[in-house]
């Protein structure tokens, strides 16, 4: 009759199993990242879009900016709470997209890490509201005159109204 496993052996086995599960979860995350990166891995009929910010006016997309296009615009730098935020000003973006006169600008994001939307008046847009490139490979809208709670991360669309 086999001896009953010791408590120490059982602990080691379960700790090892938990470690394997953690590593498997990390590998799965890398797999998902690779699968959906730059539109790869989805079907040809319905390709997953790579990250870009759509600029719309009256429901029509004026222009879409990927990260390279945003980096190609004149960059502005501002330090907020000790952290440097670098990217084009929203006013620069509006000008580049060819937006004419407007009453307000609605910035919408994924809404996962914040409220996900911000409405700005033309006066606010002129007050150093800008884009910043995040470490995750997306952009956020921020500014020294905006409350931190107003910032929109993972920006998806900018609607000019």
């Amino acid at each position: 009759m086999p001896a009953a496993p010791s408590r120490g052996g059982r602990t080691a086995r379960l700790t090892g199993l938990a470690a394997v599960l953690v590593i498997a979860a990390v590998l799965a995350a890398w797999g998902l990242q690779a699968r959906y990166a730059d539109g790869a891995g989805s079907s040809k009929d319905d390709p997953a879009p790579s990250y870009s910010v759509a600029f719309r006016q009256g429901g029509t997309i004026l222009k879409s900016y990927d990260l390279a296009a945003l980096r190609a615009l004149p960059q502005s730098r501002v330090v907020i709470d000790g952290k440097e935020q670098t990217g084009p000003l929203l006013a620069t973006l509006l000008e580049d997209a060819g937006a004419g006169s407007y009453d307000s600008v609605l910035v919408k994001g994924a809404g996962l890490r914040d409220k996900g939307s911000l409405t700005l008046t033309p006066d606010q847009v002129r007050q150093r509201v800008q884009i910043d490139f995040s470490d995750r490979g997306t952009v956020k809208v921020c500014g020294p005159d905006l409350y931190h709670a107003e910032w929109v991360r993972d920006v998806l669309t900018i609607d000019v109204r």
């Binding site: 979860a25 990390v26 890398w30 990166a37 990250y51 994924a110 997306t138």
Partner: peptide
């Protein structure tokens, strides 16, 4: 993010690095 219907391309962006 899946429940809030965030696009997968955005949701899984950098997920492996983040998980590590």
């Amino acid at each position: 993010g899946v429940i809030l219907q965030v696009p997968f391309a955005l949701l899984f962006l950098g997920l492996g690095y983040s998980a590590t």
